[in-house]
């Protein structure tokens, strides 16, 4: 159990109800603490960035700035979609970034008492992104830790980046074929 998860739990115990924005990727319901969200941009078509690390979903235009997005699908090793996606604009230490999800649902008020940390059987790679789950009546709300999906942090040691720079090197080395 990481410290971030522990603080989250402690905080939630103090206040009985927590507001969480629910987002959906495929059939899974994820939750993002509402106080980290600056804005939600709907129906975005991110511009792909060639040679970018795998987890980068592309660029979107946000309030005069160009925002780098992290694709939740790619982080979960799901194939990319061509249809417009929703973007959660999240605050981070190095500015803002976008989290690309299939769709944004409603804001849920969940009770801290329903929180459970990540199970020990969870793949450690996934566990690094997730902060535990809330038990809802009709399923689980899996919590994402916004700090852990920050592209800066992902870039600083995520396997996706290593892979991409290796790929980059191979682009340079490979001779052109006629």
């Amino acid at each position: 159990m990481s410290t971030a998860g522990a603080t989250l739990r402690r905080k939630q115990k103090a206040e009985a109800l927590v507001e969480v924005c629910s987002v959906r990727v495929e059939s899974t319901l994820f939750g993002v603490p509402i106080d980290h969200i600056l804005e939600i941009v709907g129906g975005a078509r991110p511009q792909p960035v060639p040679l970018a690390p795998d987890y980068v979903g592309g660029l979107v235009h946000y309030r005069g700035d160009v925002l780098t997005t992290v694709s939740l699908r790619r982080l979960l090793d799901l194939p990319a979609r061509e249809i417009p996606s929703d973007v959660l604009v999240l605050e981070s230490a190095g500015g803002c970034f976008g989290l690309l999800v299939d769709s944004v649902g409603e804001v849920l008020r969940v009770s801290a008492a329903d929180f459970e940390p990540n199970p020990s059987t969870l793949d450690p790679r996934r566990g690094a992104l997730l902060a535990g789950a809330y038990k809802l009546k009709d399923g689980l709300l899996v919590m994402l830790d916004p700090q852990r999906v920050d592209p800066l942090r992902l870039g600083a040691g995520h396997p996706a980046r290593v892979q991409s720079s290796a790929e980059r090197a191979s682009v340079r080395r490979e001779p052109c074929e006629r």
């Binding site: 970018a52 690390p53 980068v56 660029l59 190095g94 592209p151 870039g155």
Partner: peptide, 10 residues
């Protein structure tokens, strides 16, 4: 517009 560090690194 500036790019985030991850993309600048490319």
């Amino acid at each position: 517009k500036p790019l985030s560090a991850v993309l600048k690194d490319i």
